[in-house]
């Protein structure tokens, strides 16, 4: 590639380190039940026991691998930045996504705290535009910080005229 090909620079801020624990818990919350489901018939029904145990082992192994790898990987990728003119985020792990939305096109700004996020003192900031591409979400911010970010975004967007389409 030539020297002046542009690259995306990562957004300035990482999310809160506690997000790693949050993602780990979330992943376990899916992995554990999925692993247990085939174990139940294995305990009850003797003839199929080996097959169901193998299934449980495969699911459990994969789930555990994801639980170990995914949160750390996500922590390296998930970043966010709010400038005077735009919101810029990156997210994902295997499949990664970068989003940019100008302030003038932002319609609503919300903070959200699921029960799990609350347990870790985290919040998400959701920024919607008029596009069907879905909202931009900054997940795993410290709760106080998330509120400050949302306030700042709301202030800035209100200052910019236009109907956001």
């Amino acid at each position: 590639m030539s020297t002046d090909t542009p690259r995306l620079r990562p957004p300035q801020h990482r999310v809160d380190p506690r997000a790693v624990r949050w993602w780990t818990t979330r992943s376990l919350a899916v992995t554990v039940p999925l692993t247990v489901i085939p174990v139940v018939p294995a305990l009850i029904w003797e003839p199929v026991r080996p097959w169901f145990l193998i299934a449980a082992a495969v699911i459990g192994g994969l789930g555990l691998l994801i639980t170990v790898v995914m949160p750390r990987w996500r922590y390296r990728v998930h970043r966010w930045e709010v400038t005077d003119t735009a919101v810029y985020t990156s997210s994902g792990w295997l499949w990664q996504e970068w989003r940019v939305a100008p302030m003038s096109r932002i319609q609503t700004v919300d903070t959200e705290r699921g029960p799990l996020q609350r347990a870790f003192g985290l919040s998400s900031v959701t920024v919607t535009t008029a596009s069907a591409a879905g909202p931009i979400e900054i997940a795993g911010l410290d709760h106080a910080l998330a509120t400050r970010v949302a306030d700042r975004l709301t202030e800035t967007t209100q200052a910019v005229p236009g109907d956001a389409t």
């Binding site: 590639m1 020297t3 002046d4 090909t5 542009p6 690259r7 995306l8 620079r9 990562p10 957004p11 990987w73 390296r76 990728v77 998930h78 970043r79 930045e81 400038t83 003119t85 735009a86 810029y88 990156s90 792990w93 990664q96 940019v100 100008p102």
Partner: peptide, 21 residues
């Protein structure tokens, strides 16, 4: 113009390590 510019860097600069790229 201007929307993406501030988030781009050119390969000529020192460059920050891309997050988990």
């Amino acid at each position: 113009p201007d929307l993406l510019t501030e988030f781009l860097e050119r390969d000529t600069g020192p460059g920050v390590e891309s997050g988990g790229g």
